[in-house]
Design a protein around this nucleic acid. Sequence first.
RNA 1: GGAGAGAUGGCCGAGCGGCUGAAGGCGCUCCCCUGCUAAGGGAGUAUACGUUAAUCGCGUAUCGAGGGUUCGAAUCCCUCUCUCUCCGCCA
Length: 427
Amino acid sequence: MLDPQLLKRNIDQLAEKLRARGYTLDTDYYQSLERQRKSLQSEIESLQEQRNRISRQIGEAKAEGRDIQPILDSVDDLGGQLKDRKTGLGDIQRKLSALLSEIPNVADESVPVGRDEQDNVEVRRWGVPRRFDFPVQDHVALGEGLNQMDYETASKLAGSRFVVMTCGLARLHRALAQFMLDFHVREHGYVEVNVPLLVNQQTLFGTGQLPKFEEDQFRTADSPAYYLIPTAEVPLTNLVADRILDADTLPLRFVAHTPCFRREAGSYGKDTRGMIRQHQFEKVEMVHIVRPDQSWLALDQMTSHAESILQALELPYRVITLCTGDMGFAAAKTFDLEVWIPSQNQYREISSCSNVESFQARRMKARWRNPATGKPEPVHTLNGSGVAVGRALVAVMENYQNTDGSISVPEALAPWMGGLDRITQAA
RNA sequence: GGAGAGAUGGCCGAGCGGCUGAAGGCGCUCCCCUGCUAAGGGAGUAUACGUUAAUCGCGUAUCGAGGGUUCGAAUCCCUCUCUCUCCGCCA
C-alpha cells in the first residue's frame, strides 16, 4: 500500500513513476472516488454529530426526570439518512481500497528503468565458471543416472513439477538447507523461526500476494480458506503485523527454512524439465524489519548474506539489479543473485533480495514508535532468499559433477553429510 | 468432534443501555522533593480520518470481526473468528 499522501499530493508524478513499472494508474477514476468519499464522509460525520448531541440531551433530560418526547420528535429521520449515506460510503470505500490494494510499489530512484529482464543491470560477478573436460550433464540426467531423482514417480504421486529424491541426493538437499539456516543464525545473527505453512487471507494481503495474485496461490477448500505459503516471507514479515514496535527492538532479523508452494500459473512452457521450477520447493528465507532510515543499508547487508552462502559453497554467481519492469509487486528495489548453471551455460536466479520500504508495513499495520516524533510510523521491511534450496541443489550437482556422473560434496556441507563426501550410484 | 468460559488502551484489569475514549493499577515521559544504585509528591501518556499553514482546539470513528435492536451500545440480540478449560480423538 502506498502512502496515501503520494496519491493526494502528487498524483500525476506518481502515475508517471508507476508507468515505468508497467502500471497505469487511472487518476481520474481515483480522484472522482476520492471526491465522493470525502463529501459522503463529512456528510455522515455531521449527521452523527447531530445524533450524538440529541442523544446526549435525551440522556440529560432523563437524568433530570424531564419529558423526553419533544426531543425524540425532533430526531426526525436521522437514522434513515445515516444508513443511506453509510451504504453509499461503503461502496465507495470498497472501490477505493480495491484500487489502492492493486497499485504496486514505486521503484526507488536508483532502479534502472526498463521493460523486462532484458533491461536488468549486472552489478558484479563472483567466481569463475569451471571448465569441464568432459561433456556436462544437467541435473536431471545426473540425478536419474544416480538413480536418486525420480520425476516419473513424482508425477504419478502428484503431477508435473514435483520430484522424488532419495539417498545421497535427498541428504544433500537437506544438508544444504541446514547449512544455510545455521550459517545465517551463527554468522549473521538471525533469529531462527519456525512458521505456519498455511496462512489466512489477511496474512497474504499483508505481504501483497492478495488480492492481485490469487491465481498464483494454492488454497484449501475450507471456509475461510487457508493458503499454502508461496514463500516464508509471508509468515515471517507478518510476525510484526498490527504491532507498534519499540525503537530499541529494531532491527529484527528473521530466518526460516520452509517449503514453498506455487501454482506457477502463467509459466506453463517455462523450465518444464527438472527442479528449476516446481510447485513445491524449499527455501531459506531472510526477513529484516528495520527503521526507515536503515533499510537501504539493510538491503546491502541482506544481499551480502545471501552471497556468502554461494561463496561458502564456491558457486560462481552474479548480482543484478532488476529493472522497473521486472520487479515484483511490493519491491522498491531488488537485487537478484544468479548462480552459474553449466548445462544451460548461463546464470539463473537463486536468490532475490528486496527492499519493500513501507509498502507491506502499511498493508499489515506494522509500525514502530519513532523517538524523534513520539508517533507510530510504518517500519520498513526487506526479504531475501538465503537461498533457494532446490536451485542450490541443482547448482551443486551440476558444478560439482564428475566425469563418471558422481557428485562431489562441497566442503562447507561436510558437517551435515554424515561423512559422505561424494554421491555415487552405490550411495 | 462434544460441553463450558472468555476476547476492553503498551501491559494487567473494571465497566454490563446514557456526560465512558473508557475507573484503577503497572509501565513510560516531564517536573518537584530527596542527595544517591531506594523511596515520596505532582502532571502527562491510544490510534485513524476530517477541519487547520501548523499547533491548540473542535468533529467523527474505533472496547476480537461483521450485522441487528435503540434517540443512544464496550454494555442487549444474531453470525463468524480466535483464546482458554474439560471430555473424545490423534502425530
